[in-house]
Design a protein around this nucleic acid. Structure first.
Lengths: 261, 261
DNA sequence: AGACTAAGTTTCAAATAGTGAAACCAAACG
DNA sequence: CGTTTGGTTTCACTATTTGAAACTTAGTCT
């Protein structure tokens, strides 16, 4: 809930409110927000007013409810096409999807959580917005563990502090200690497994996408079901996945220094 | 450029900076932003720091460049699925695309500009993030004019003030007066034309999506080329488009009061 | 009706947080 | 090496934010 740590300054508070509105699935009334937030009435009111005035929120005059504004959609368009690995990785995901015939995930780290930025479905065509932008836990997903494993100490610490360690399945690594041991194994192995840790019957093989400097940029995974395949079979594809991750990393980096001018 | 009107408060400035980063297609360095922004060095610096700390921006430690952060992608996911008409309209867009075989646009108003929130391409399947989130001018597009025509006076005024009235083609209505006359005609007619006003050879028929109270929620358009069809043929479909717009509006509204509890 | 209640909006003095010129530091350059 | 360029920190000044409380509407109850 409100355990949002320290919201620095007015901007932090405003963004906090934004998150609050986002977390409800539907338009919210002022009083709903008021009862949830730690901020006093007048403060919250002005915050909402500012955000609305800025187009980050929409106030429906009929119902008096707030919803996220369209300006966010515009910003996100830019965010997706510029900040994330998605646009660069797109052709590679297609390639990987074609070769494996399995579900592909491309994820990045967002405040200790896994954020899926792109995806290919085994069968159906992609439904972008509907899928990308989703978040998931880091400690019990392939992509999550792959990224955690290569995070520098302080960042890892920060991320660990945000894990819930909820036990989704009997296989879930539901403690800090177990997870740390696993991360060590992942570093050794070079890729992460998901052994039905998040969802029964779902397994995956994930590799990190690392910059030349060793910084974690994201992770890439191939997901399947125990009904269709085994960890061993998935593991056979690990070199190929790693290879594609390396290509994505290389292209992402070279994209950074196009015209140093 | 900096003609951003009045950025109220710190929050406004922060969002302003966010837009600035977004407007560059690529990661930007501090000095680039500095030269562009009206804010003094230290102010801009702290703003960037705050935004980075909040996950709205990412600072690449290797290159010292800022890019939009992943938190935006997450927020946008929520924004798209909650605030916009897109999720509701989706099946209707499919229907309209199937019936007409033409390109379909669903747009909303964003600070005087047209924001495309969903789209169906004539031939290819949709590329969501790559297309949705784009913005365009209001005064010379079908959807733009359709929305302007039903805006209440003050909102119209605010929107008009933000139009550039650049003459894209000989047909572009490049003045406030011409546009106002056209808007009147649109209200009479019930739908807006785009007579190659934005791009030569591209025509479209657009209708507003209005709430029961008459509030503009968005607009819907069918686009084609002069090579393939004529305004008259497009106009023949206007009733159907209007019908679908009405359905979207109805569903969007009923969605608002699901469980009044 | 008239008195209550809930929900949203506005006020205003006090306090905090934001400002920005200038100083500082550190690489990169010549 | 001295200099430039690019980024970070300081600090006194001030404008913005704060939030208790007063105020307005609507909507309810008796």
């Amino acid at each position: 809930m409100g355990a949002e740590g320290h919201a620095d300054g007015t901007v932090g508070k405003a963004l906090d409110v934004l998150d609050m509105v986002a977390s409800h699935g539907r338009p919210v009334r002022f009083s709903d927000l008021l009862s949830q937030s730690a901020y006093p009435k007048a403060t919250l009111y002005r915050l909402l007013q500012t955000l609305t005035h800025q187009g980050m929120l929409t106030l429906d005059p009929d119902t008096g409810t707030y919803a996220l504004g369209v300006r966010l959609v515009r910003l996100a368009h830019a965010a997706w096409s510029q900040s994330s690995l998605a646009p660069i990785a797109r052709p590679y995901l297609d390639e990987l999807a074609a070769k494996t015939g399995e579900t592909i995930h491309l994820a990045q780290m967002d405040l200790g959580q896994v954020l899926y930025v792109d995806k290919r479905n085994a069968a159906k065509p992609v439904e972008m917005f509907a899928q990308a932008g989703k978040v998931g836990p880091a400690y019990c997903t392939g992509v999550g563990k792959a990224m955690l494993a290569w995070l520098p100490p302080e960042a890892l610490e920060a991320a660990l502090a945000r894990q819930s360690f909820h036990r989704f399945t009997p296989q879930t690594l539901a403690s800090r200690e177990e997870l740390l041991k696993e991360l060590e194994a992942i570093r050794q192995r070079g890729h992460a497994w998901d052994r039905e840790e998040h969802e029964a019957g779902i397994i995956c093989c994930a590799v990190p996408i690392l910059s030349r400097g060793g910084r974690v940029m994201g992770a890439l995974s191939v997901t399947s079901t125990t009904a269709r395949t085994t960890l061993e079979e998935l593991g056979a594809q690990a070199p190929m996945i790693k290879d594609i991750a390396a290509k994505i990393a290389a292209e992402a980096e070279s994209w950074r220094f196009p015209e140093q001018v």
